[in-house]
Write a protein that binds this DNA or RNA. Structure first.
Lengths: 251, 251
DNA sequence: GACTTGCGTTGACGTGGATCAACCCGGATC
DNA sequence: GATCCGGGTTGATCCACGTCAACGCAAGTC
């Protein structure tokens, strides 16, 4: 183990090749050299699609890989002893999950598919090995972990300081930006998660989410039909997030 | 750069030697081999103590090192454009800070000393270099980043789901456990942060913290005098955290 | 020892969002 | 097309906590 020739390249893997992947720009290999990408994609294990509701891993499962979403959406959640759940993240195509297993080499989250979802499996032992030879990937990994930490800190602020309305507006803008990045419309999209999941994630009751959607809708900021969302006034939505205070400074 | 002999070893550095350090067990080099520790400690830069209120780094500062607290306490906080602050962590002796700078190589937090505090500076370029040669340190770094992520996820749950009382109880137990780990009393200690900081960290108002201290005190769970805390009934404190539901299962 | 300053406490009061409950609706099943 | 079912909406009510305001007290500072 550790040599450059790990596995024979088979057809299934070629189909998953990072170069051919439409998510190439979003995924792990941002800013890596060709040789690094080559070796990384040789490490990718093929995986069958997950059905809606299926778990990719559960708390206590041995951590052996990171996962990149190819299509579909997943959620990560932690569970307390008495069965209470906290959704800690949603993962869209091109986004990574599994970092919760890095400590102790055991997963602490449950990862569940919100719809039919396929993921790339990136065996962690391979990532580690490549990191040793290519500092570029090591950098990339650190940056990625750092981003996760920064994002969770922003989430702490959201939960500690924001009103329900600000939280939902912020959530919608985040979704919107993520859809834009991968080339979809940023003003019209389908929520892949239930009101219940959104509420849980934002530390609110599902009823509150429902009422807020109605209010924002009545105010003309957006329209909602079931899980179909269309944003009409992104600027005003953004003003809600900024808490109406400040930021008029630079206008 | 990159060779084994980076700098001449001087007296100041010897004084900071990881081997002599009373925090040896708590700090980064847990589970590393002698050679790795040797090289790591040669990289440690000496630093003058920070006065109470002084900032170690600010948002936008170039990230070039991680810091381990040697004595004193620090807090990390993020700031919004309109000056709003969110405390995202407290750092006690033996604990690390600076991970917020890993993404983009710029810090996003402000790190402030809560009292006179000294820190070890671990230049990140050195850590990276050593990681390449010693897989043990690479593992350690990943584990450490993973722990940070896990802890922040637990914090999300705390903010999203817990009542004020549960939050404070949880915070006190966390402090208590951290004091114990470093050999201090876990039932009697001095809070190095203000009520304001605690409240901010826990997403509450300072008045609420004050009232809760009074109540817990009246109920005999603990006694407080200014910043001096003594825990009388740790079990009952723990019951508050568990939310009174469940967990009676295994008793 | 008077004066300030900043932190902490306590009380009175108002409210944002949780909770409880009823109902609606679209999609699946037969 | 009747039945069921899970998710979503809406309304009525309640309460945990924020807000505002007054006050206490320790530690400087002159």
């Amino acid at each position: 183990m550790g040599g450059p020739e790990q596995k024979p390249v088979d057809v299934a893997q070629l189909a998953l090749s990072c170069k051919n992947c439409s998510l190439a720009e979003l995924c792990l290999p941002r800013g890596l050299e060709a040789a690094e990408i080559d070796r990384l994609q040789r490490a990718i294990a093929p995986r069958r699609p997950l059905q809606r509701g299926a778990a990719l891993y559960r708390p206590g499962d041995r951590f052996h890989a990171l996962y990149a979403v190819k299509s579909g959406t997943m959620k990560s959640l932690i569970t307390t002893r008495d069965g209470e759940e906290q959704v800690v993240g949603f993962h869209m195509p091109g986004e990574l999950l599994g970092l919760d297993g890095l400590h102790h080499e055991k997963h602490t989250c449950t990862a569940v598919a919100l719809e039919r979802t396929t993921v790339c499996e990136l065996p962690f032992s391979q990532i580690e090995a490549i990191c040793r030879d290519y500092p570029g990937l090591q950098r990339e990994m650190c940056s990625l972990l750092g981003r996760e930490i920064n994002e969770e800190q922003n989430m702490l602020l959201l939960l500690a300081k924001r009103t329900a309305e600000e939280r939902l507006a912020s959530f919608l803008l985040s979704l919107s930006a993520r859809y834009r990045r991968r080339g979809y419309s940023d003003t019209e999209f389908i929520l892949s998660m239930s009101r219940h999941d959104i509420a849980n994630y934002l530390g609110l009751a599902p009823e509150t989410i429902s009422r807020l959607f109605s209010r924002l809708s009545a105010d003309g900021l957006l329209s909602v039909d079931r899980r179909h969302v269309r944003i009409h006034d992104r600027d005003q939505l953004r003003e809600l997030v900024e808490g109406s205070v400040g930021l008029r400074l630079e206008a």
